[in-house]
Nucleic acid binder design. Sequence first.
DNA 1: TCTGCAATTGG
DNA 2: CGCCAATTGCAGAC
Length: 878
Amino acid sequence: MTDSAKPTLMVVDGHSLAYRAFFALPVENFTTKDNQHTNAIYGFLSMLVNLIKAEQPTHMAIAFDTSRHSFRTDQYPEYKATRSESPQEFRGQIPLLQDCLAAMSIPVLTKEGVEADDILATLSTQGAEQGYDVLVVSGDRDTIQLVTDDVTLLYPSVQGVSQLKRYDPTTVRERYGVAPEQYPDIAALVGETSDNLPGVPKVGEKTAVKWLTQFGSLDDLLERSGEIKGVVGGNLRDHIDDVRRNRRLNRLLRDVELPVAPDDLAVAPIDAQAVRDIFARLEFRTLLPRVFEAVGAGEVADDPAAAAVVLPEPSQVTAAEFLEWVDAQAADVSLRIPLQGGVPTRLGAATETDLREIDWSDEVADALRPWLESDRPKIIHDAKPQVKALRRQGIRLAGLAYDTSLAGWLLRPSFPDKTLGDLVERYLGEKLPEADPSQLVPETEGATPAQEAWFALRVATALREDIPESVAAVLTDIELPTLLTLADMEVAGVAVSHEVLSTFSGELATRADGLAQDAFGIVGREFNLGSPKQLQEVLFEDLQLPKTRKTKTGYSTDAAVLADLQESHPHPFLGLLLQHREATKLRQIIESLDTAIGDDHRVHTTYVQTGSQTGRLSSTDPNLQNIPVRTEESRRIRSAFQVGEGYESLLTADYSQIEMRIMAHLSGDEGLIEAFNSGEDLHRFVGARVFGVDPSDVTAAMRTKVKAMSYGLVYGLSAFGLSKQLRIEQSEAKQLMIEYFARFGAVRDYLRASVITAKEVGYTETIFGRRRPFPDLASPNRVLRENAERAALNAPIQGSAADIMKIALLHIHEDLRSEALSSRALLQIHDELVVEVAPGEWDATERIVRARMGDAADLRVPLDVQVGRGRDWNEAAH
DNA sequence: TCTGCAATTGG
DNA sequence: CGCCAATTGCAGAC
């Protein structure tokens, strides 16, 4: 290692190492909320910190290339010409990396006309002369020539950026068979494809080393090239000029004029605040303590961020003590109620400095109820399960001021940060202590409830700083009240009749069996109809049907291609297969529903509030948002969803064409706005305009076409897709689009403009300010980029619809309660609500639902609401 | 036992 | 070559 008596000068090729980091680290993990890529910066700094820790340099500098242009390109324009330009995603990171280095007080050196390696060569030469141990860190093999007894090269190995291989004269000789100063001779003979420097054909490292050993030097070799026999000898003589050129170009300049000398590069104290600021902007959390640690704690010993995190210990208190404590708190209190089987076991609470804990009991519940039900602000991570548990105990939690799970999702809807631990890692750069559930007696103690609350509080503080104002408003005004509403809906559940389901299930089982037997009869053997693999054998080998659209694993057998196949090559097996699929699918759904019916004869779904990219809810366990509806038969399942005991009827209310209305509003298209204000059927109105006929003369075919076009618009449908869906020629689809946009041009203008804006700012925004980032809009990959464009086009529309429905739902919930009605919302299916209406409350409930859905947003077109009433969901839908 | 895939359901 | 979801069974990997 290095001689401790001598100072150590470390010089680094910033460009080449950052570039390696750029490809080594997945960009999806290193993108800030405003879509700045940071993988190269992070990878480079991480490596640098490790280096500083390991090598303890006393002097340091990082060199960067200024551009692709240098004295080498002047001499040989083809130099590095085959190298594709580094992507914008990489180049954009370099200035930020240099800002980081500036904050860390590490000199950054560049010089027009020379490459970073020339700066390294100059500094290492000067350093060695002036008595330094020199460390050269570079990913360019040409720097091997710099190695001496005083100069060591650290070169990234194939294993990755973090693994650096150490080259001194001995290891260079072991690896390349020549002394370091002779390495450029070898490189000149062999050539360097990455620099676009062709060498002598058929000459590799081995031949080059053999020659150099034999002739002593490159000059002697070239002079006496006539002595070399065979094809390679001829090749050498033919390429002598290339070799001389290569050698000229790969010699690093050791006398570049620099504004600094090694003595000027002494390691200086870092600017701790500047580092914190820029790391905050780049959203580096774990790196911060590592940097402070590596540069020595001396300058930053009193820095809170660098100090080791010591978990505060909670004190166990009585209910009375707890209330006294909580009453004295001016700021938000964070809360955590651990559950077992949906029942509270304890309660932990925390402020920035104080932690309190109580074992849960009925007495504690009663004592704490006034505070829990008060407006005193409470911060909770993933509040819904805890709110539900309290509600089952008769406590209605109020004052929910922040939910870190919701806030994390709103800030980054695409990130899978689900647990408190994920957020602690991302926003605090710390580790939430967790007990290993696989160990009976865990080695590490998990955080206590109050400690978890304490972490949630600090995560909330970090999130509050990061979240833009409009997104914070969505959290407060929409998501938090929605959470409380959903908790009520989930606890309520919906009554489902086991009898109706099991009768239907039995019928379907019999039918599926019969269909399967018929199908086997046709094929001549039995097989698993549900196995795509076996099915492909039967279709394309036994029955010799033409191959269909390819999938990753074979050929598609989905309903659409089967229908196409049936048309081109009618075969009785195909019809049976489709019917069998339908019957088994319905049965599956029925079975999963049936097993979900609880002791109260009701099904309690779970709404996932953070489940979508756009702001929609999703429903799981079971999913009640995809109960079949499209066929008459499948609607029998809906008739199993019935009004529950103590209630009189079900009310369904759905928005008609809400997405098209939002599009009319956002685009301001006068034609579309008129369509919605005219009271005429939308597709009839649009059809009349597009085809230039009277509304009464719009045929069914015309209506189908414009309807497909209208809905397709919202998804970024192409002429190709439209033609496929309508089974018309692509040219006709294209013509339809032209005619459509001739009448409703503002729609197209809006869609185009919204994608362009998203590209500029990096995200889309709904009417209410919900954001969704789209890093892929800048991707050089066309498929990725175009997918992102369609999603970006759709996001404000789908997202605004989701916002509107949430607002309507939470208002309905509030109104029903404030008017002391027992009727209650049960289900939300994106644009539809199902409400259970108590005896005598129909009129009031219908009035509230209509009003609140109608006035949830103030658009340039009315929000039309269809209401139905019945004893079951199917009946109510009419 | 877990995971990816194709297929189906809904908006 | 249409956006957003959840669930299921199969088949291959571990």
